[in-house]
């Protein structure tokens, strides 16, 4: 991306933004990951199986 910042302020702003987007990324991985786990659980349940395999 063409984000060639000239000033120090811009750089700081950029790194803050990068920090925030990274956090957003991690949060969405965790959030969607949890959502998928719930989805898996429900879909195994619907097929009469337990999500946690025993034996």
């Amino acid at each position: 991306m063409a984000l060639e910042a000239g000033s120090v302020a811009m750089q700081e702003q950029n790194s803050a933004l990068r920090m925030k987007t990274t956090l957003a990324f991690i949060a969405s991985v965790l959030g969607f990951g949890a959502l998928f786990l719930v989805l898996d659980l429900l879909l195994f349940n619907a097929q009469g199986l337990s999500f946690v395999f025993k034996g």
Binding site: K20, A24, F25, A27, S28, V29, F36, D40, F53
Partner: peptide, 28 residues
């Protein structure tokens, strides 16, 4: 930026979930 991060997160979580389902339930 956040939208892109959200989409990237969605893809990452999906890839992880699909791999987990394939490896764990597929082989163990």
């Amino acid at each position: 930026k956040y939208g892109n991060a959200l989409q990237a997160g969605l893809f990452t979580a999906a890839v992880a979930n699909i791999s987990f389902l394939g490896v764990y339930y597929g082989y163990f």
